[in-house]
Simulated scan of single mutants.
Amino acid sequence: MQFFVWGAWNVTLGLAMQTVGIGNLIGNAFSMGPIASIAGSFLLGMAAARYVSPKMLMVILHLVGGAILFAMPGLVTPENGATFVWVLLGYMILYMPTVGLANTIALKSFGERTDNFPFVRAFGTLGWIAAGLIVGWAGLSASPEIFRVAAVVSVALGLYSLTLPDVPSDAPRDEGIVAQVFCVEAFGLMRQRSFLIFILCATLISIPLAMYYAYASPYVGAAGIENVGGTLAIGQMSELAFMFSMPWLYRRFGVKPLLLVGMVAWALRYALFAIGDGGGNLWAIYLGVALHGVCYDFFFVAGAIYTGTIATPKGVNAQAQGMLTLFTYGVGMLLGSQIGALLYAQLPATPTIADWHAMWWYPAIAAAAIALLFQLTFRDDRRMETAA
């Protein structure tokens, strides 16, 4: 339910906005999530979690968020487009902290059996897939009504959260709340050259990542594919397939090969989009979407595991994961949304598939350059120490 709420509207929002005539605001709309990742973490994720139990925060945030979602379709119009973007920011500030809260409740409920977490997280991906399939099946991919679908499940999740385990709030650490919020100890990890290069490349690769989330749906629609939501759900099915193998692959090959494969996959995906069309090259679109499992799991899941191995000896795992989210889903995707908006502004009001081809070469070349930079500069110091 947690990821169904997000996936119901996020996947095809770009297509819905283009359909109603506010495609010029797609970049701004998809900038709200990154901004909310930063603001929501500061205002709610760290501060409020010290005074309110995770369960009750889930109840409050999803019920209030559901009420906002019900009002969203009336704002997705040319007259109210700017208002819609600001209301979306308000909603995302409420929603983004619930992702971490859901993880916290699950992990604290497991106790020492945190190795079971990937199986629970897999149901989040299943929820995202279900949202895409339902939206596509109902013919709502290009409709603002996607927000009402999300609203119903958000309210249901808020009520269901009353039955969740009543895990305690985080115990205050020795340092002050300002030091915790700004991840002071986690930033100190970047004194390690390898981790600094990883954070830099993770931020950079998140720039082309943002363009996929914002513009994949109108691109797929321009190719003549009607079930846009169901088509993009193929990417999450691929993600699910690779998720369970990631711990084994990480132990077998180490972090650098996995991260590099993930970066190269991003370049390949955008190159496929740059040649895909609704005719003989339709296969390139489906293959590009299906690469999502490699793109996401090999970089972001492997990156989270790597961050944990660096941060755990220092006892700042939670801060380090928050810092990684700040740089990737915050800084990187914010830059990507704005750069994507500038590129999209160069396209006609109703882009053809040929117009889209020119746009996708930019993130393809950028991802390839970042992969080359990573290959030349990154060295897995911890794996080398272990081998020695």
Rank of each mutant, 00 (worst) to 15 (best):
A214N: 06
Y212P: 01
F84I: 01
G40H: 05
S109G: 12
L343K: 14
I105H: 08
Q180M: 15
G254N: 01
A320F: 04
Y329S: 12
S245C: 10
I68D: 05
V87P: 03
P313I: 06
L326C: 12
R173I: 12
V167A: 08
V181S: 11
T163L: 15
A345N: 11
E175F: 11
A82T: 07
G221S: 11
T352V: 12
A150F: 07
M384G: 09
I197M: 10
R173L: 13
A39L: 15
Q319N: 12
N28T: 08
E145Q: 11
R252P: 03
L140M: 10
F299P: 00
S245G: 10
A216E: 06
A36F: 09
A364D: 08
M1I: 12
M384T: 11
H292W: 06
S161F: 12
F378R: 01
W356H: 04
L44Q: 06
F327D: 01
T104A: 14
G21Y: 14
F244I: 02
A216P: 09
S194A: 13
P73H: 07
A349K: 12
V294I: 11
A387N: 08
Y270F: 15
F117K: 01
V120K: 04
A131F: 06
G21V: 11
V294N: 00
G40Y: 05
L291Q: 03
A345L: 12
L232Y: 06
S245V: 07
I353N: 14
L342V: 15
L159M: 14
C295W: 02
N28W: 10
L334D: 05
K55C: 07
F299S: 00
D297W: 02
M17E: 05
P208V: 04
T83M: 09
V5N: 04
D381R: 13
L43A: 13
G224N: 14
G308S: 03
Q18G: 08
L334W: 13
A130F: 13
R173N: 11
I93A: 05
L258N: 00
Q236V: 12
V255F: 01
G293R: 00
V181L: 15
M17L: 12
I305H: 00
L88A: 05
R50H: 15
F273T: 01
G21R: 07
M56A: 10
K256C: 01
T325P: 05
V20D: 03
A71R: 07
F300H: 00
L259K: 01
F42A: 15
L43H: 07
G288F: 04
W248R: 06
I285P: 02
A214L: 08
